[in-house]
Amino acid sequence: MDDTLKQALALGRAYYLKKDYGLAETYLTQVVESNPSFADVYNMLGVVYHDQGQYQKALRAFEAALRINPGYTDAALNLAVTYNDTGKYREAQETYRHALSRSGAAHGKLDRYVQGKLANMYADIGDVYLSSGLHDEAIAEYRRALALGPAFCDVRAKLAGALRDAGDREAAISEYEEVVRQNPTYVLARLNLGLALYGGGRRDDAVAQWRAVLEISPGNRNAELYLQVAGG
C-alpha cells in the first residue's frame, strides 16, 4: 500500500470513529476504489450508508466485507440489522444464525455483543407486528428478545403494552411490575402499571403508583390527571 492510500485509510478511520460520516465516506471510498481487499473498510462504509438511509448500498458493502472475510462477525450483524430494516426478516435471522455460529462464544452460550444485537432485532420485529395490530406475534417476538436480554426494560414495557392491548391484563401487570422492580424510576412504566391496576379494580394500588410518579417527577400532568379521576 502506497503512502497516499495509507493516509486515506487513516483519515477514513479517524473520521469514522468521530462519526463524521461524510468525510469518512470520501476517504474510505478512495481506499476501496484503489484496493478492494479491506473487509473492515467495507464494513465502515456499510455503517455510513446505513446511517444515511442508503440501505441497498449498505447491504452491498456488508456483503462485500463478508466475501473478503466470511468470519467477520460485526459485518454479519450489521448486515442482519440492515436486512431487518428493509423488511427482509428471514434473511436477517439466517444471517444472525451464521454470525452466532462464528462468534467464538462458548458452546451453548452467546457472545454478549451478539446477544444484545439479536435481542434488539427481535424487539424491532415485534414493533413491526405491533404496529400492524398483530399482538400475538408481537408478544412472541418481545419474549424472544427478553430471553436474550432480560434486563431490557424498554422491551419488557413494550411486551406489557402488547399484552394489555391483547386483553391479558394480569400478564401485563406482571410485566409492568417487573419493569418497575428493575427500574423504579421508569415513569412511563409506573403510569401504565397504574392504569392496568385501575382497570383491574385495584384502585389503591393504582393510586400508589401514580403518587410514586409524582415523587419521581413532581408536577407530572398524567399522574395528576389519573389521581383526579381516581379520586386519589
Results as ranks from 00 to 15, higher is better:
residue 88 K to Q: 15
residue 90 R to L: 10
residue 90 R to S: 11
residue 116 G to A: 14
residue 62 F to V: 04
residue 135 H to I: 00
residue 109 K to F: 09
residue 83 Y to I: 06
residue 85 D to L: 13
residue 73 T to W: 00
residue 61 A to E: 01
residue 32 V to D: 01
residue 72 Y to A: 06
residue 91 E to S: 12
residue 73 T to P: 00
residue 28 L to P: 03
residue 115 Q to K: 15
residue 83 Y to A: 07
residue 40 D to Y: 10
residue 117 K to H: 11
residue 113 Y to M: 11
residue 121 M to V: 05
residue 138 A to M: 02
residue 59 L to Q: 01
residue 131 S to H: 03
residue 89 Y to C: 01
residue 46 G to V: 02
residue 138 A to G: 04
residue 63 E to D: 13
residue 49 Y to M: 05
residue 106 A to E: 11
residue 71 G to S: 15
residue 103 S to W: 09
residue 40 D to S: 12
residue 132 S to N: 13
residue 107 H to I: 12
residue 103 S to P: 05
residue 61 A to V: 03
residue 28 L to Y: 10
residue 69 N to K: 11
residue 129 Y to Q: 06
residue 43 N to M: 10
residue 107 H to R: 14
residue 129 Y to N: 00
residue 137 E to P: 03
residue 133 G to I: 12
residue 51 D to M: 00
residue 24 A to N: 10
residue 60 R to N: 13
residue 111 D to C: 04
residue 89 Y to V: 11
residue 59 L to Y: 03
residue 60 R to P: 00
residue 77 L to D: 01
residue 80 A to Q: 02
residue 95 T to P: 08
residue 109 K to E: 10
residue 124 D to H: 09
residue 136 D to W: 06
residue 46 G to A: 08
residue 45 L to S: 02
residue 98 H to D: 11
residue 60 R to T: 11
residue 70 P to Q: 11
residue 104 G to I: 04
residue 65 A to M: 08
residue 75 A to P: 04
residue 117 K to L: 12
residue 117 K to V: 14
residue 114 V to L: 09
residue 108 G to K: 13
residue 49 Y to I: 00
residue 65 A to I: 09
residue 86 T to P: 06
residue 113 Y to Q: 13
residue 116 G to Y: 09
residue 42 Y to Q: 07
residue 95 T to W: 04
residue 96 Y to G: 03
residue 129 Y to H: 14
residue 38 F to P: 00
residue 138 A to D: 05
residue 96 Y to C: 05
residue 63 E to I: 07
residue 133 G to E: 06
residue 115 Q to G: 03
residue 103 S to F: 10
residue 87 G to P: 01
residue 96 Y to R: 02
residue 85 D to F: 05
residue 101 S to W: 05
residue 54 Q to C: 00
residue 127 D to T: 09
residue 83 Y to C: 08
residue 56 Q to K: 14
residue 22 G to N: 12
residue 23 L to N: 15
residue 49 Y to E: 05
residue 122 Y to T: 12
residue 70 P to N: 06
residue 68 I to D: 04
residue 96 Y to E: 04
residue 88 K to G: 02
residue 53 G to D: 07
residue 70 P to C: 07
residue 119 A to I: 07
residue 102 R to H: 07
residue 129 Y to S: 05
residue 137 E to K: 13
residue 81 V to Q: 12
residue 115 Q to E: 15
residue 125 I to Q: 14
residue 48 V to H: 05
residue 68 I to Q: 08
residue 50 H to P: 01
residue 41 V to Y: 03
residue 38 F to G: 03
residue 69 N to P: 00
residue 98 H to Y: 14
residue 116 G to R: 14
residue 90 R to Y: 03
residue 119 A to L: 02
residue 27 Y to M: 05
residue 118 L to E: 06
residue 103 S to R: 06
residue 34 S to I: 00
residue 69 N to E: 15
residue 47 V to M: 07
residue 86 T to A: 13
residue 111 D to Q: 10
residue 72 Y to T: 01
residue 48 V to R: 06
residue 29 T to Q: 13
residue 34 S to V: 09
residue 105 A to Y: 14
residue 79 L to E: 02
residue 57 K to E: 14
residue 98 H to K: 14
residue 92 A to V: 05
residue 39 A to R: 05
residue 28 L to K: 07
residue 107 H to L: 11
residue 39 A to K: 09
residue 21 Y to M: 08
residue 139 I to E: 04
residue 60 R to L: 09
residue 31 V to P: 07
residue 43 N to H: 13
residue 130 L to H: 11
residue 67 R to L: 14
residue 35 N to Q: 15
residue 92 A to T: 07
